[in-house]
């Protein structure tokens, strides 16, 4: 779509390039218009028209230039980056506040549990805590970015210029920025609080985050809209319980160190996660979903 837009953009400018002489004259007319000359406006003054005649611009060219300028004005819309920034106030703050509150609460509970169970943040305790924290951060993104269904906003959002796909992408970006900040904060605090090496700390943040993100994306696709709240309420505790049980019965998973193998695993998970997020954004914009009432 972007390529098409670029092609059409070139074509729009290319319209000027088809005939060298026409291009030059049209460019002069548009330049005069943008400099404040009223020659191209139908209601322009007689004096302005006379000055236009003075540069030998035929009436049909004036009309074409006026139409082109009207089209430009209409196409003068904000870009995607500005769109994301404009959404900060309505989406970004909400998402970040929910993430911060949820993860602060979970951190408090988790810290008490893991410190209590494993002493003053042993290697295993810290690893389990970071796994749980990052998995929770990844899973929370999905319900936070899936807004609009319950509030009957979807049709109006879908019919707008940016539509649901780009709105979903903006929300994913905002949630991703929040996750990145929280993961960095968790990394910093873990590095200070424990004796684990930084590579291992990054491993226990990155791999569970990406793994839970891939799981969450798959569930997001399968969960019917009506069941989504209950579904997420069931999935999150299940994943956290899985981490606790793994800590008890497969403790070796939480005594890993950073290695080339884990780098490959992370790279694969990152590719799958990125693809899942891209598909989720595209799926959000697929028409007829509002009729079917499916989530994602």
């Amino acid at each position: 779509m972007k390529r098409k837009g670029v092609r059409q953009g070139r074509k729009r400018n290319g319209m000027l390039k088809e005939d060298g002489g026409l291009e030059e004259r049209l460019r002069r007319c548009l330049g005069a218009q943008e400099a404040g000359c009223e020659a191209l406006r139908p209601e322009g003054s007689a004096a302005a028209r006379q000055s236009a005649d003075a540069v030998c611009v035929p009436p049909e060219l004036l009309a074409a230039a006026g139409a082109e300028l009207a089209g430009r004005t209409r196409r003068n819309r904000i870009g995607f980056g500005t769109f994301v920034l404009r959404l900060l106030r309505y989406e970004g703050l909400r998402i970040w506040l929910c993430q911060a509150l949820a993860l602060a609460g979970a951190s408090l509970i988790g810290r008490l549990y893991f410190q209590g169970a494993f002493g003053d943040f042993s290697v295993r305790g810290m690893a389990m805590f970071l796994c749980a924290f990052s998995a929770l951060a990844a899973l929370l993104s999905f319900p936070l970015t899936g807004r609009g269904r319950g509030c009957r906003m979807r049709e109006t959002e879908l019919a707008s210029r940016y539509g649901l796909a780009k709105l979903a992408a903006a929300r994913v970006l905002l949630a991703g920025a929040g996750n990145l900040a929280l993961l960095c904060a968790a990394f910093g605090m873990a590095a200070r609080a424990s004796g684990c090496d930084r590579g291992s700390l990054a491993l226990y943040l990155l791999v569970p985050f990406l793994g839970a993100g891939c799981l969450g994306a798959g569930l997001n696709r399968m969960l019917p809209e009506a069941c989504a709240p209950a579904g997420w309420c069931a999935v999150v505790p299940a994943v956290l319980a899985g981490i606790v049980l793994a800590g008890r019965y497969a403790p070796a998973w939480f005594e890993q160190t950073y290695s080339g193998g884990w780098t490959c695993v992370s790279a694969v998970l990152l590719a799958v996660y990125a693809d899942q997020m891209r598909r989720q954004c595209r799926r959000a914009g697929l028409v007829d979903r509002i009729a079917a009432g499916w989530s994602g």
């Binding site: 819309r77 904000i78 769109f83 404009r86 309505y90 109006t156 959002e157 940016y162 709105l167």
Partner: peptide
């Protein structure tokens, strides 16, 4: 477009909603 059934995010004021929709429309 004005759909038959449409809603609003609960925290939106009238101005907030219009500004949000304006952003979605790229204004």
């Amino acid at each position: 477009y004005l759909p038959q059934e449409f809603g609003f995010y609960p925290e939106f004021t009238v101005k907030d909603y219009l500004e949000y929709m304006a952003a979605l429309k790229g204004l």
